[in-house]
């Protein structure tokens, strides 16, 4: 099976699920990695070290920013010239649009968010969650070429082989742009929610500490946000000692405690960490929709009847302002930090 893997990156920073896709592709045979960008030699080297036999490279100033129409035309031309039967992508906001767009040019099928890919001769059967993970479906694709985007953390990451190299083949960048990128305001995201092994999340409860005295001159709303920031600081410290990322409920986002990019759930991000610690989150069905693939959930909530405890393996009924810092200290001691 002639398989290519698209390596997704933002300003040179590769989305780790790209390597997971590369590892999966290698299990089917030899593999070419597709790298698009401007000044991306470091990614090419990394792709070889993660197992690519060949890199198909379009390195062009027109590809500095991801613009879907430009990247899709480049990918479509490449796929038409080389006729692979399978292109794997990590599931990201960029690849979803890229695969969708190029599939119109090539009239091929796209399957998103695969959690298993079974290849048997020429037949490929993909398993993916639907209805927010309440069900799984197996799907097949009838076109000669198919695109599959894989869920982050659903497949093992290949070992890096330092110094391994391979063949680089240059491909032409298409430059027919319809859009102009004006700029970015990049959040201080730290560890990204998509590939975090541990996520510590805060909900509306992070603002609930009446004993904290906000600085003078703040009105009620500002005091609430100030308190929430103290709460999220504790959440962040726990995440940091565990090398994890910070998430949030929608109530925390709507109240202005933390940006939308941290939101977990139906209208936020769907995450799949090994450990998810929910602090001051009640466990509404829309929040749970985002954490169904977490291997283990721990809940810290002062209400023993909060529904989050039904989704949790371990729970503490108590005040997060007390329990979370105690937990941070315990891990510092036990993990020798």
């Amino acid at each position: 099976m002639k398989t290519f893997v698209y390596i997704d990156h933002f300003k040179g920073e590769v989305q780790p699920a790209s390597w997971e896709a590369l590892g999966l592709a290698k299990s089917f045979g030899s593999t070419s990695a597709i790298v698009f960008g401007s000044g991306v030699e470091a990614i090419v080297k990394d792709a070889f070290e993660h197992g690519a036999d060949e890199v198909l490279l379009a390195d062009d100033p027109a590809l500095l920013d991801f613009r879907v129409e430009v990247f899709a035309s480049t990918l479509s031309a490449l796929a038409s010239a080389q006729s692979p039967s399978l292109i794997l992508f990590p599931s990201t906001t960029r690849t979803r649009e890229l695969a969708a767009t190029s599939a119109v040019d090539l009239n091929c099928g796209v399957i998103t968010d695969a959690t298993a890919v079974d290849v048997n001769g020429d037949s490929v059967v993909v398993t993916r969650p639907i209805y927010e993970g309440k069900l799984f479906e197996k799907v097949t694709c009838s076109s000669a070429l198919q695109f599959i985007t894989i869920r982050g953390r659903a497949f093992p990451k290949p070992e890096k082989q330092a110094g391994k190299t391979g063949t680089t083949t240059n491909v032409e960048a298409k430059t027919d742009a319809l859009t102009t990128v004006e700029g970015y305001s990049v959040a201080e995201v730290g560890v990204s929610l998509n590939d975090a092994g541990v996520i510590v999340s805060g909900g509306r409860g992070v603002s609930n500490n009446p004993s904290l005295q906000p600085p003078a001159g703040l009105d009620d709303k500002q005091s609430e946000v100030w308190r929430a920031q103290q709460g999220f600081k504790l959440v962040g410290e726990l995440a940091s000692v565990l090398g994890g990322a910070v998430g949030a409920s929608r109530a925390a986002v709507d109240a202005g405690y933390i940006p939308y990019s941290n939101q977990v759930g139906q209208t936020g991000k769907v995450v799949a960490p090994d450990l998810y610690i929910a602090c001051g989150i009640s466990g509404a069905i829309q929040h749970l929709a985002g954490i169904r693939s977490a291997k283990m959930v721990v809940a810290i909530n002062k209400d023993a009847d909060a529904p989050i405890f039904k989704a949790a393996r371990y729970g503490v009924v108590g005040d997060l302002f007390v329990i979370v810092p105690a937990l941070t200290e315990a891990f510092k001691r036990k993990l020798g930090k």
Binding site: L135, K138, V139, T140, C141, A311
Partner: peptide, 18 residues
């Protein structure tokens, strides 16, 4: 082009919080 061949319920979660 893409068609469903099978529908499955997810494995039941081992429950009971401690």
């Amino acid at each position: 082009i893409v068609t469903r061949s099978e529908l499955m319920s997810p494995p039941a979660r081992e429950s009971a919080v401690e």
